[in-house]
């Protein structure tokens, strides 16, 4: 499981355009949450696979972020992030490239 004291993408992301809470919200709506997973917990560094999300879940996540934030995410790029923290960082880099 994630170490809540590890380098803090969570803190970083809460000041960014796309936050860990945004990711949680979109995952919940798009791919759902298994009963044994606490998505509101310290998930930033937990691999997606351990949270029950496969490549299809990340494809769905990609589509939803693209539509909501009006950005383009090249095929496979978000699916290749391993953890929520990496995904949040990646989305923010895309958002800043798009000048948002």
């Amino acid at each position: 499981m994630a170490d809540p004291t590890s380098p803090n993408p969570v803190t970083l992301s809460t000041t960014s355009a796309f936050t860990l809470d945004d990711l949680r919200r979109i995952l919940r709506a798009g791919a759902g949450v298994d009963e044994q997973i606490d998505l509101s917990g310290a998930i930033a560094g937990v691999p997606f696979a351990e949270l029950g999300y496969d490549s299809l879940a990340l494809l769905e996540l990609t589509g939803r972020i693209e539509r909501e934030y009006a950005i383009r995410i090249p095929d496979g790029e978000l699916e290749h992030t391993r953890t929520p923290a990496e995904a949040v960082t990646y989305v923010n880099s895309q958002l800043s490239q798009e000048g948002i």
Partner: peptide, 8 residues
């Protein structure tokens, strides 16, 4: 239904 499978 298991949570993840509801929207999927």
């Amino acid at each position: 239904v298991p949570g993840r499978l509801v929207p999927q």
